[in-house]
Design a protein around this nucleic acid. Structure first.
Lengths: 142, 142
DNA sequence: AGTTTAATTGAAATTTAATCTCAATTTCAA
DNA sequence: TTGAAATTGAGATTAAATTTCAATTAAACT
């Protein structure tokens, strides 16, 4: 169970697994996809559990540090996260017309990035590659 | 002159080329590299010109719309911009500790992206590739 | 050159995501 | 069960960016 990883991470730091942290964890892992902190907070609230915004934000940061959750991108409306446990990393193509998101993965691009990091004495931890343009359907209509 | 492009962009929209807009423009194009709105505001202030923060932010947005300036990344301390006129496209590595930005360009990665777009029947228009991690200096200190 | 009209400006207020404060509460190891 | 240390929540705070609106300014037109 993924929660065991979180529990270990916490105890390794002398931190405690509280009800609020469990609630945040469960809500994140019950869902598959991207989410924003505010929506997460509201979902937890709807589910009946009591967890303040402060706790949601604090737990989110812990989950990122533990590696179970990733900060995907920063938009003008705030950060976007997704849980990463058991999911292979991927990148996105976004259609500027219909907002369709196509996921893709390229081993070759990953390797080239590693190579570039090495060359620049940079330790890459994460990356975002987003290609914007027109999907097949929308491109045809122009 | 680049300012002519800006002037045309403005008049095409029924907007005016004011002293403040010229000041913002000049400060940005006098410099080569990345900048944050607040530092830009302070530099303009130091140069003796009078332009409020509001005007700096407003002009910055116009310059982005005109294509002369690009918003290259969002850090927790705010947005980072660079002027793009006459610069070849490149991507960025951002240090999560000190926010240092390293530019890089890879023909191979560009080509692989084109290939992936073709495979997915997607017409790519632009892309952002940002690698986040630790620069040489900050990586060593951990 | 002067007039007109709509755009622009600046100072301060506002917005919004995210963090911080601190007294009260909860966890968990002993 | 107890007690030290971590955690919580409500509200305050922070900081980047935007908005408001009365006063000012650019520039098109006489």
């Amino acid at each position: 169970m993924e929660i065991e990883i979180f529990r270990k991470f916490l105890s390794g730091r002398g931190l405690k697994l509280t009800n609020q942290r469990v609630a945040v964890f469960n809500e994140i892992f019950a869902f598959h996809g991207h989410f924003e902190p505010e929506r997460l907070y509201l979902k937890i609230k709807d589910s009946g559990t009591r967890a303040s915004r402060a706790s949601v934000y604090r737990t989110l940061n812990l989950l990122v540090e533990s590696g179970l959750v990733e900060k995907i991108t920063r938009t003008e409306k705030g950060n976007v996260y997704e849980h990463t446990y058991g999911h292979r990393h991927h990148d996105h193509m976004v259609c500027e017309v219909c907002d369709e998101i196509i996921e893709f993965y390229s081993e070759k691009i990953e390797n080239l990035q590693d190579e570039i990091c090495r060359k620049n004495n940079f330790r890459g931890v994460s990356h975002t590659l987003e290609i914007r343009g027109y999907c097949g359907k929308c491109g045809r209509q122009r």
